[in-house]
Design a protein around this nucleic acid. Sequence first.
DNA 1: CCTACTTTGTGAATACTTTCACAAGCCCCG
DNA 2: CGGGGCTTGTGAAAGTATTCACAAAGTAGG
Lengths: 208, 208
Amino acid sequence: MKRIADSTVRRLSIYLRFLEGSSQRDLATVSSAELARHGGTTSAQVRKDLSFFGSFGKRGLGYSVPELTNSIRDILGLGREWNVIIVGAGKIGTALAQYHGFRPRGFHVVGVYDTDIGKVGTRWDGIVVRDFSLVTADLASRPVDIAVLAVPAEGAQEAANRLVDAGVKAILNFAPTQLQVPPDVAVRSVNMAMELEGLSYELSSRAR
Amino acid sequence: MKRIADSTVRRLSIYLRFLEGSSQRDLATVSSAELARHGGTTSAQVRKDLSFFGSFGKRGLGYSVPELTNSIRDILGLGREWNVIIVGAGKIGTALAQYHGFRPRGFHVVGVYDTDIGKVGTRWDGIVVRDFSLVTADLASRPVDIAVLAVPAEGAQEAANRLVDAGVKAILNFAPTQLQVPPDVAVRSVNMAMELEGLSYELSSRAR
DNA sequence: CCTACTTTGTGAATACTTTCACAAGCCCCG
DNA sequence: CGGGGCTTGTGAAAGTATTCACAAAGTAGG
């Protein structure tokens, strides 16, 4: 299958978010122009994005909201449950563990880990923080699809190594570090410093 | 001045992060190949990225770590202090307000806001949470460069509108919504759901 | 000072993404 | 049931970004 651009996948996510809102507002169909307006792109882009995966609309009418919603969920692999663990029970890890946007999208938080003995054993929302050194054994009995890495920059690479050894195939990295992982492991990074610097650049370059 | 690609700016951020680490390790010079290896790209890419802004290296030798660090800081507009406010004192807002990566990079958190009266008046790290309805008046007397938006999706657009009216020119959006703002306002979004869905897509498409 | 070696800076080539533009298909109404 | 009006799906064109490849410029060592 042809490789799909990252930018296309991100936009599908955006369309999906809008569609979920639309179904609550009882809209039956939506046009590529409407999707574009709310997704910050063009109607041609919307149609091209979808065309990589098939043909979902009706000419003259647009897209059925429930049908397109399901199709995009399918494309993104959201038709199943994904097991997720959170590594690092600091401020960000804590906020993430309590974030209620995981469940409804099929991401199931099955564990929280930390190396700090002081944090191990505390619990939020029914999830007990476990010692990170147990992660390899835990994952051997219950496989996990995605690990969310919320540890300080210094420990991030080492933690990632251990997760990869334990069989994790996808990491969402919140540490401000560029992780080195084998090619069969997917990594996405969320880097506050990078985003702020991007804004700083835009503000500075506009002043010129 | 020619428009610089977003991807280039992001990579500059990555190079900068590596350079900051290198100077601690007392490295005097660094080659484009080394920067590439740690930044997950190629040496030609590194050189091309830098070439948009000038000529910073010495042929046969590489780049001086302190000099290149300063040059990139300059390019990114980090040679000054930026005033930042955080809007939304929920879990994510709280975690961000206490994040200690802001200061050393010149981002100065000068205020935290929320609409919830129960939260107004509480304080962390010496910053008192203020009523969001005061933000327009506050910004009139003390301008702010960047607003970090950490409110639920439902209120995000409305909050953004008010910030734009109050003169904010850059928003870092943590709400899972596509904000509509005037073209002279810079927006970057950090969207957990989108990143998780991206990983979900990669995991699913690989299985094929 | 000369030779061998390294690494930058950059046009040109390639690869990838987005936009254009329009035929084809579908709905609706008379 | 046929024509007008929309909107999709998609090749082709335009626009961006990345990679290649090599001359130019520097270092190092005798």
